[in-house]
């Protein structure tokens, strides 16, 4: 799976790199206390992520797809410790990291330097007052304080060249670069500490298609060269198909279906996966009308009962309205959370 993985001293080279079980993150979205009292409203909880489990194997790319509000970005932030877990457990390479959000500074440095994150907005992800060299060197200054500034500068130059820029760019400021170049700088910063695992939150959705192609190619090249493992988050099915080995489809804070990429695109099981695939506009289709799907994603603060997808689903019955379906593994390697599929009403 990982041909050129540089062996980390003392690391346990298990097949599974990250295991997430029953992740949940709830946000308190109630109005201030005084308004609640005056308007006689209750506390409101947004269950952004509610019981998500998956594993990521070393060297693979797992994609999370879904529409806005499905919780895919929250999952990313839970994994890297930007948010604390409301419930659930995260194990990274055999080490429990569930409480990572509460650990900062040196105490968590050993684990934190093994993964990194790439963000969506290339205009907000670089400190506008810092030179590019300082930005890329920041993780090095923190994780390797013993490194001399000359070595650090050399390393920053290497990193810039690795992402297709020139070492001289280190002296410039972020505003001098285009969106695509800034995303390259972000990637260089993420690579600084030779991480094994990268969480990529919609890394190309703010970019133009031709620049997207450059960035996606770069990410694939880097994955091959360093044996990186990616958690790739996107709403774009075509991009996901291009990048992912396995895909998890999320809907309103839960996983609807996880399947190997080819499997999902050939035979999606969950009605929502089918809908998502049918909704993708196609360049190839000879003026093909997209299947028009009724309805929109409901407000996640008030999700529907039972299976959250049931109001939009043609196969929903009484059980779907009452009971939350669990992810059940199927013989073809996919896992599906759907009563209809489980009962054989739908295959």
């Amino acid at each position: 799976m990982s041909p050129t993985q540089p062996v980390q001293a003392g690391s346990n080279r298990s097949e599974v790199l990250l295991e997430a079980s029953d992740l949940a993150r709830h946000f308190d979205v109630s109005k201030p206390w005084l308004n609640r009292v005056l308007e006689r409203t209750d506390k409101l909880t947004l269950k952004a992520v509610d019981g998500v489990s998956f594993t990521i194997r070393r060297g693979e790319t797992l994609a999370l797809v879904g529409e806005s509000g499905c919780g895919k970005s929250t999952v990313a932030r839970l994994i890297v410790g930007l948010y604390g877990l409301t419930r659930g457990r995260l194990v990274f390479d055999g080490q429990e990291i569930s409480d990572l959000a509460r650990r900062s500074g040196r105490r968590s440095a050993a684990i934190r330097q093994r993964f990194q994150m790439i963000f969506q907005d290339p205009y907000a992800s670089l400190n506008p007052l810092w030179r590019v060299g300082t930005i890329i060197g920041e993780p090095l200054r923190f994780f390797r304080p013993e490194m001399s500034s000359v070595d650090r500068r050399r390393r920053v130059g290497e990193l810039l060249e690795q992402v297709g820029m020139s070492a001289a760019d280190a002296n410039r400021y972020p505003h001098e670069f285009s969106g695509g170049q800034r995303q390259r700088i972000s990637i260089a910063r993420a690579l600084a500490n030779e991480p094994e695992f990268m969480v990529c939150d919609e890394p190309t959705s703010a970019l133009d298609v031709s620049v997207q192609a450059q960035i996606l190619n770069l990410m694939k090249d880097l994955q091959q060269e360093y044996g990186l493992t990616y958690l790739f988050i996107s709403h774009d099915m075509a991009v996901v198909k291009h990048m992912a080995d396995r895909i998890a489809v999320m809907y309103l804070g839960r996983i609807a279906e996880i399947a190997p990429s080819d499997q999902l695109f050939a035979t999606p099981h969950h009605p929502y996966s089918r809908m998502l695939l049918a909704a993708v506009p196609s360049l190839e289709g000879e003026g093909r009308e997209r299947t028009v799907i009724q309805g929109e994603v409901p407000n996640p603060v008030h999700p529907p009962s039972g299976c959250a997808f049931h109001p939009r689903c043609h196969h929903a019955n009484e059980r779907c309205k009452a009971e939350v379906p669990a992810l059940i593994a199927r013989s073809d390697g996919s896992e599906v959370a759907c009563h209809a599929v489980e009962e054989g009403r739908l295959d």
Partner: peptide, 23 residues
């Protein structure tokens, strides 16, 4: 030509996308 080729498609899977160099 380059623009069309750089769009990832659902129908096929390529190892690399065509990329127009530069900006």
């Amino acid at each position: 030509e380059g623009l069309m080729a750089s769009i990832p498609g659902l129908a096929e899977r390529r190892e690399r996308l065509y990329q127009i160099e530069g900006a």
